[in-house]
Amino acid sequence: MTVRFGIIGTNWITETFIQAAKQIEDFSLTAVYSRSKEKGDSFAEKHGAAYVFTDLNEMAKSNCLDAVYIASPNALHAEQSIVFLKNKKHVLCEKAIASNVKELQEMISTAKENNVLLMEALKTTLLPNFRVVQKNIHKIGKVRRAFASYCQYSSRYDAYKEGNILNAFKPELSNGSLMDIGVYCVYPMVVLFGKPLSVKASSYLLETGVDGEGSIIMTYKDMDVIIMYSKITNSYIPSEIQGEEGNILFDQMNTPKKVDIYYRNGDKEDITQPQKEEAMYYEAKEFVERIKAGQTESPVNSYEVSLAVMEILEEARKQTGVVFPADHN
């Protein structure tokens, strides 16, 4: 069974997704949506898609696709996903999957009503080098702390400082550091440890009202998770899980490529797994496999996880004063 995909957006992330997904035997790109017909035609020709749409509703009703990958700005995720879900199309939606909890709840209920798959496109949790952490975490004994860092200076910040505010720093698009890259820290930690008992957040707000950088402490019954994220500075610190018998270190939070265990007795174990360079392959594969199996939810990037993550993001925004227009809808 070949799954025929439509793509929303003609940016670098959709290019990256297509390159990865084309390695899956049952993936077929058939349709492209762009507000610009010219841009859509050019993108479709480049990637071998037969259909180009400039009308989202028309695309959603079309019989030329089974599923859609949505990589538009965050503020459009819920509205666009719901259009496709109502037309019984499966939806793989980029992180952060929605602007807030209310939007996500509506997306999930629409997916359930129409018996189709909705999945958040968060690649980290499906990578071999994250799965190996899950399999080996018992080796470090009782976990007492985890530290997740993703700080990446954005080239768009240079433009921002010159007075050119690009999408990454616009609250009307539900963007900012937490929604863009902080989520890469929060999501895997929720998959590993579940929903925290409490959240304490702080951040530095830019003049537009979005966060440039921030940190979160997620408190659990007998441990805590410390998260650090930024789009206005870099960090080269690895992320770490600290247990009573040892530590697991991974080189980068969004796409771990090197994973080591350091035991308290001085031993070290390299548990790094072979992993495709095209990291989005694994999320695309998970999505296609669930569709083929007739399943309407991923057991990894599940509704429960996405909702817990969205609750944390929303609470962190409340504590730090990051408000989106979508919050008032």
Results as ranks from 00 to 15, higher is better:
residue 4 R to F: 02
residue 267 D to Y: 04
residue 254 N to L: 03
residue 24 I to N: 06
residue 121 A to M: 08
residue 150 Y to R: 05
residue 30 T to H: 11
residue 56 L to R: 12
residue 167 N to G: 05
residue 280 M to P: 00
residue 90 H to D: 13
residue 281 Y to E: 00
residue 169 F to S: 09
residue 194 G to A: 07
residue 161 K to L: 15
residue 111 A to N: 08
residue 259 V to D: 02
residue 288 V to K: 01
residue 203 S to K: 00
residue 240 E to W: 00
residue 67 A to S: 08
residue 202 S to R: 13
residue 214 G to A: 02
residue 316 A to M: 04
residue 114 N to P: 15
residue 87 N to S: 11
residue 160 Y to P: 12
residue 132 V to P: 03
residue 182 G to R: 00
residue 272 T to L: 01
residue 145 R to N: 11
residue 316 A to V: 03
residue 150 Y to G: 00
residue 161 K to V: 15
residue 247 N to Y: 02
residue 176 G to S: 05
residue 94 E to L: 12
residue 272 T to S: 14
residue 254 N to S: 08
residue 325 P to L: 03
residue 69 Y to T: 09
residue 86 K to D: 14
residue 39 K to E: 14
residue 86 K to A: 12
residue 90 H to Y: 09
residue 133 V to R: 01
residue 233 T to P: 07
residue 269 E to I: 07
residue 32 V to R: 04
residue 101 V to A: 10
residue 201 A to N: 01
residue 212 G to Y: 01
residue 154 S to C: 04
residue 84 F to M: 15
residue 16 T to R: 05
residue 105 Q to Y: 07
residue 270 D to T: 10
residue 261 I to K: 05
residue 38 E to W: 03
residue 201 A to V: 05
residue 73 P to R: 03
residue 29 L to Y: 08
residue 297 E to K: 05
residue 245 E to V: 04
residue 21 A to L: 03
residue 319 Q to G: 12
residue 110 T to C: 11
residue 225 V to Q: 03
residue 43 F to G: 15
residue 155 S to E: 15
residue 140 I to E: 07
residue 38 E to K: 14
residue 307 L to E: 11
residue 74 N to Q: 06
residue 16 T to G: 05
residue 248 I to E: 04
residue 160 Y to G: 12
residue 226 I to T: 09
residue 245 E to N: 14
residue 174 S to V: 04
residue 328 H to E: 05
residue 67 A to D: 08
residue 40 G to A: 12
residue 266 G to K: 09
residue 53 F to L: 10
residue 141 G to K: 13
residue 272 T to R: 01
residue 172 E to Y: 12
residue 69 Y to H: 13
residue 20 A to Q: 02
residue 13 I to L: 11
residue 213 E to P: 05
residue 156 R to S: 14
residue 201 A to D: 01
residue 17 F to M: 05
residue 74 N to K: 02
residue 163 G to I: 13
residue 96 A to Q: 13
residue 141 G to L: 13
residue 153 Y to G: 06
residue 38 E to C: 10
residue 329 N to T: 06
residue 201 A to L: 01
residue 217 I to E: 12
residue 253 M to N: 12
residue 119 M to G: 02
residue 145 R to C: 10
